[in-house]
């Protein structure tokens, strides 16, 4: 593959992420990897549901008295919006508009960081109240499920930032287009998982 080929918006292929064999393989391989990730999160969800509110006898923590929906709502909105902005970024990627793509990715990263900030605040708040990873089976399963998602957010952010910095000077080509594309796929996946966390952990949690 020749990195020096210069494209114009007219000569840029309609599906730049799948214009090369490597790109096709990457996109398919990443979808398949996400299939495996789905099973990973399914196992974590199942464990959380089995261990929710379970702890040493007399434990005062429960999903009902711990979780606050306004906070979870703000986090959900931040992450959902970041998914939308990453769609805009991919729209501009397909139109060979590098600057606009970088701009929307930057907004995506900011929203992701906002989400992460709230999550860290939430965790420190719980830990301050005594609800820790080691305090009960409930704590272990909660922090593992939500924390694994948080780790995915961190990795996703690191990934997108690295891609933006690496390609800042050289713009789009058929070598890095699939990379941007699958990073955004990953970001959407993180978003979908959060929708389930919001529903299963928070919404179902506060039901009395």
């Amino acid at each position: 593959m020749d990195l020096k080929t210069k494209f114009t918006p007219q000569s840029w292929p309609e599906h730049p992420e799948a214009a090369t064999v490597e790109g096709k393989n990457k996109v398919l391989g990443f979808w398949i990897f996400l299939g495996g990730e789905t099973v990973l999160f399914a196992s974590l969800f199942a464990t959380f549901l089995a261990l929710k509110n379970k702890g040493p006898s007399g434990m005062e923590f429960s999903t009902q008295n711990l979780f606050e929906l306004p906070l979870a709502f703000i986090m959900t909105m931040l992450l959902l919006t970041s998914s939308l902005t990453s769609v805009y970024a991919m729209y501009h990627m397909k139109n060979y508009n590098f600057k606009a793509m970088q701009g929307w990715l930057f907004i995506t990263v900011l929203l992701g960081l906002g989400f992460l900030g709230f999550e860290i605040y939430e965790f420190t708040h719980y830990i301050h109240e005594g609800f820790t990873f080691t305090q009960s089976a409930f704590g272990s399963s909660f922090y593992t499920l939500v924390g694994t998602h948080g780790l995915h957010v961190v990795i996703g952010l690191g990934w997108i930032i690295l891609l933006m910095l690496r390609n800042a000077k050289r713009g789009l080509n058929l070598y890095n287009a699939p990379k941007f594309f699958i990073a955004s796929l990953y970001w959407h996946f993180i978003d979908v998982v959060w929708v389930f966390i919001f529903t299963v952990v928070y919404l179902m949690g506060v039901i009395k």
Binding site: A50, L51, K54, P56, M59, F133, S136, A137, G139, S140
Partner: peptide, 19 residues
């Protein structure tokens, strides 16, 4: 459970070994 003090499988802490 073994190295970082969690309680997934420890029933005294609410865990469940069948998981």
């Amino acid at each position: 459970d073994r190295m970082f003090g969690s309680n997934f499988f420890d029933h005294t802490m609410g865990g469940n070994t069948i998981i």
